[in-house]
Computed example of a mutant assay.
Amino acid sequence: MKINKKAYINNFHAISSAGNSAEELFESICEKKDCISIDSTYVKDRNVAIGKIKNDKSFKELLLEGCKRVLDESSLSDYSNTLLIVGSSVGGMGVTESVYFQDKSYENIDYKEHTIDSIAYNLKKEFTFYDDVSFSTACTSSANALGYAKEVLSKGIYKNVLVVGADSLCSTTVCGFAALSVLSSKPCTPFDKNREGMNVSEAIAILLLQDEKTENSVELCGVGYSSDSHHMTQPHPDGLGAKNAIENALSDASITFEQVDYINAHGTGTIANDNSEANAVASLFTNKPYLGSTKSFTGHTLGAAGAIEAIISVMCLQKQIVVPCKDLETPNRDDISFTNEALSSNLNYVVSNSFAFGGNNTSLVFGKCNEN
């Protein structure tokens, strides 16, 4: 089935260590604020840097309020033709941990609050969505959710899709990455020679996509997937999977490499990821568009990363600003363009990359809408 309707991002909301709204998030990035905390409670006998939401409300409350805000601000009078798509790596694991740590028992754990679709389960109790789908593909979860949203909108299956990327901090994930020896004791510095590693973080990102544009819409023009299956936890060193995903996304958007103005990198701050992605970008983009990672502000929000970085990419296009890299003092590449300051620029297309364990790669292309 090929109808080719367009997918427009018409409303969004974000909550992260960098702010309790999308505007706060973007301001924190442009002003290079310190958003990452040092924590000694997750990993025994060790301080690690994490990205923690600074809000007294529970993660569940913030999630429900955020969705209500986006839906209330939209043109929807009801949600009967709205699909809910959730991308998450953690699901309700944090809820399960809190019950277990309190009771020292599994008896009171509710499996409906534990699984990946627990987020959709709770949202459906509040809103009358037509249906829901949950994606759990590690750190590409919400990027893949956005890709699926574009597909169902372009085929005319739905007119409205609410995409939610959400992951909360929990001991299982923080200690899991500690076991891989990739955590940093300070805020991460992707693409810097002196980087230590990544920061595990939490975030909620909510985007409403529709098949008709509004005054300030940004189009999700292209989606590209690949799977290089090089290694369980490391990407191919030459960036082969990343290259394929980017190439597929640009092909889907029907644009050339030269038309890309900014790349929001996956950029976790680990040696394996940064080098692989840099190799892919340097080999593809001879025009050297600016590349940067916003994880030095938000940390790595795991399954929420694709959605929250989609919001950042959309705001770059809306505000015509290339956002800065934070604390990038000694870049380990001279064949890639970085900026340490927010720059006003003529942006037409932005690429946002999300890469995950197992060589699971997704690239998204966002484009400024024409005036007519």
Rank of each mutant, 00 (worst) to 15 (best):
Leu209Val: 12
Lys326Ser: 02
Thr298Tyr: 03
Ser21Trp: 12
Phe12Thr: 01
Gly303Pro: 07
Ser40Phe: 09
Lys33Glu: 03
Ser345Ile: 01
Lys104Gly: 05
Tyr100Leu: 06
Ser283Gly: 09
Ala265Trp: 05
Leu220Ile: 05
Val163Ser: 08
Ala49Asp: 00
Thr330Phe: 10
Asn144Ala: 04
Gly19Ser: 11
Leu25Ser: 03
Val99Cys: 13
Ile271Asp: 05
Asp132Trp: 03
Leu76Asn: 07
Asp252Trp: 09
Phe366His: 04
His114Lys: 13
Asp110Tyr: 13
Ala272Thr: 11
Ala18Asp: 06
Cys67Gly: 00
Asn10Ser: 08
Asp39Phe: 02
Tyr111Glu: 08
Ile271His: 09
Ser118Ile: 02
Cys325Gln: 15
Leu347Ser: 10
Ser171Ile: 01
Pro289Phe: 07
Asn10Lys: 14
Ile9Gln: 08
His236Phe: 01
Leu347Ile: 11
Val163Thr: 10
Ala265Asn: 09
Val314Ser: 06
Glu23Tyr: 05
His231Asn: 15
Val218Asn: 09
Ala242Cys: 14
Asn244Val: 00
Leu317Thr: 12
Tyr225Gln: 06
Thr330Leu: 12
Lys5Met: 05
Ala280Gly: 09
Lys159Trp: 01
Asp167His: 14
Thr330Tyr: 10
Lys186Gly: 00
Asn144His: 12
Ile312Thr: 08
Phe355Gln: 04
Ser89Trp: 02
